[in-house]
Simulated assay, not measured.
Amino acid sequence: MTKYGYARVSTTDQDLTIQVDALRAAECEVIRQEKVSGASRVGRDELRTLMDFLREGDTLVVTRIDRLARSIGDLQDIVRELRERGVGLQATEQPIDTQTAAGKAFLDMLGVFAEFETNLRRERQAEGIAKAKAKGVYKGRKPSIDADRVKALKAEGLGGSEIAKRLGIGRASVYRALDK
């Protein structure tokens, strides 16, 4: 019956201190933390480690449910996996405790709202990009490959693999630059 804490922020410049302090206050014996997007479970090694380590009777503690998952699908998968293994889930800042009926219901509602918020953010971002493109302000990121240099090396008789090796880029990038 051990409590394990999980803290997550989306970017490397964000700070985990507040979450870690809250998890310590919740008496978590072990706290895993990572700085990675919560949009999916891909690349979330610390979460995977915790999920592999949790045993029946243990409790996974997060500060807020959006620290665990940003999509209802991922949240449901995580909760289902925890439930099948007899592991509880609690949140320090929200009335979530999967060992109670009210806690389960609240968890489901929060998961829906977390996904809704993510979708709204994506829509706003796409709208902003479309407006910027219409004004001619947004042109995407600047090319990272010097197409003229690629063409010059090709003119010297070098093949795609050698050009890629010299410039430290992929062969596909060489051929894309040559097609332009």
Rank of each mutant, 00 (worst) to 15 (best):
T118Y: 11
A147R: 11
T17H: 04
D148R: 12
G111E: 01
Q14M: 06
T59D: 00
A7I: 02
D179N: 13
I163S: 01
F53G: 09
A105H: 07
A152E: 10
F116Q: 14
V62Y: 01
R70W: 01
M109P: 03
S144R: 14
K104L: 06
A22K: 04
L89C: 10
F116D: 13
A177S: 13
L60D: 02
E115H: 03
D52S: 13
A25C: 07
R80D: 10
L89I: 07
V174P: 08
Q125D: 08
E56G: 12
D148T: 12
L153W: 03
S37N: 10
L23G: 00
V20P: 00
A69K: 01
R121V: 11
V9E: 02
L60N: 00
E117K: 10
D13F: 01
A39M: 03
A132Y: 07
V87I: 12
A147T: 14
T2W: 06
Q14K: 04
K180F: 04
E84R: 15
G157H: 06
S161A: 07
T49I: 10
G73V: 05
D13T: 05
T100C: 13
E162Y: 04
E27Y: 14
E46Q: 05
V112M: 15
G159A: 14
M1G: 15
Y6K: 00
K131G: 12
K3V: 04
D108T: 09
D66S: 05
S144Y: 08
R171K: 14
R64A: 02
R141L: 11
R32A: 13
I169E: 04
T2Q: 12
R122D: 12
R149M: 10
K180N: 11
R80G: 11
T98R: 09
A132W: 06
L23T: 02
A152C: 03
D146T: 14
K3H: 08
G160M: 07
Y175L: 10
E29W: 07
R85L: 02
T59N: 05
A102T: 14
G43I: 03
K104W: 06
G43R: 07
